[in-house]
Design a protein around this nucleic acid. Structure first.
Lengths: 191, 191
DNA sequence: TTATAATGCAAGTATATACTTGCATAAATG
DNA sequence: CATTTATGCAAGTATATACTTGCATTATAA
């Protein structure tokens, strides 16, 4: 991607975070990118295509992969700490804001899968992990689905609140939260 | 509120859940409400005012109050079960969808406080509760802020995912999730 | 240097949308 | 019944927005 294109993509995604896709105008995109509006259309063809091109880029994609949860030590606390760090390093407030800003019918069919895949991948990784740990007699609960959704919620909730209210709801640091929440969760399920 | 007004409010809020405020047109509101578009404006004056009027109504407001968390039994599990039920009965997927649909600058100044107050009230109630339980030696952890944000995330995450992906992410029933998550959480913090 | 491609600029098109208004009719109210 | 009020209907206004186009200018590359 060339320089001008990247400036346009950046401007677009930042505006989407601020006001959502429908209220983001191509005029304002051009202004913020420091280019002429006609350039925007000559490069991308349409407003929608700016976003679709952006989503391909690493910067605007959490890129959470199944492999992220396939390597573990069988030490419950150590593993969950690692999973939590991975999740919260990749699923940033920025990504959450963009995802929320993209919620509109025009884009839904293109973005929905990519967006839903993030919690899906995390949940799947966790479910498999809990299943394995249960077999090895390291945890009590047998409802791995509940455990996975719980751990997912614990992590997602934190990013979501930061994305939505910055530090106004809680000023807890990410690292503090990770340590405390993993400690309590592990304490709650370990044998 | 008269019958026509309610039909308009209902149509508006349902459309906002489906496509968000900016993409909800007064024309479509009128169609869905079965009234003429001019009636919409004669009754409410502007599109924005339909929403502001709706937010006053009980139906479109979770109405989560501080008092909801001031009565408890000092039995950790019993209390947290009650708090979770209260939260998830009031903060419905419907409310979450509307809140997400209202995210736009034009409405932000009017809706932000009301929306943020929901997690705020819950967090405050929980923090106070954990503080009390810690004093009485019934829980271990002393970081009540972390505990509150954790329990909030556990509950909010569940509604959010249901609101966003219906049963596609998880088909867990609300009641099952409440029981399991409270069990594990209590297990993790009790003395 | 010369040819090609990328951009700026200005004007314009087509469409959608919030909102208005005047008049006729229906509904409610006294 | 008579009067007021709410609504339907149709036409219209003002504005915004995605997108286009022709031409001049600048940057790039051969």
């Amino acid at each position: 991607m060339d320089k001008t294109g990247l400036k346009i993509i950046n401007a677009t995604m930042n505006l989407i975070m601020e006001k959502g896709y429908p209220l983001t105008t191509t005029k304002e995109i051009a202004n913020r990118a420091g280019v002429n509006e006609s350039t925007v259309f000559r490069k991308f063809g349409s407003k929608k295509d700016i976003v679709l091109n952006a989503m391909e880029l690493r910067e605007w994609n959490p890129d959470l992969a199944a492999d992220d949860f396939k390597v573990y030590s069988l030490d419950l606390k150590k593993d969950l700490l690692k999973f939590s760090h991975t999740y919260l390093n990749k699923v940033t407030p920025k990504f959450v804001k963009v995802s929320l800003g993209l919620r509109c019918p025009e884009l839904y069919e293109y973005t929905k899968d990519g967006i839903m895949q993030v919690p899906m991948v995390f949940k799947k990784g966790l479910t498999d992990y809990f299943c394995e740990m249960y077999k090895r007699g390291k945890i009590n609960s047998s409802d791995h689905e509940s455990l996975a959704v719980m751990f997912l919620s614990l992590n997602f909730g934190f990013v979501f609140f930061k994305a939505s209210f910055d530090d106004m709801l809680t000023s807890l640091l990410k690292e503090t939260y990770i340590q405390n929440s993993v400690n309590i969760f592990v304490n709650g399920i370990k044998k």
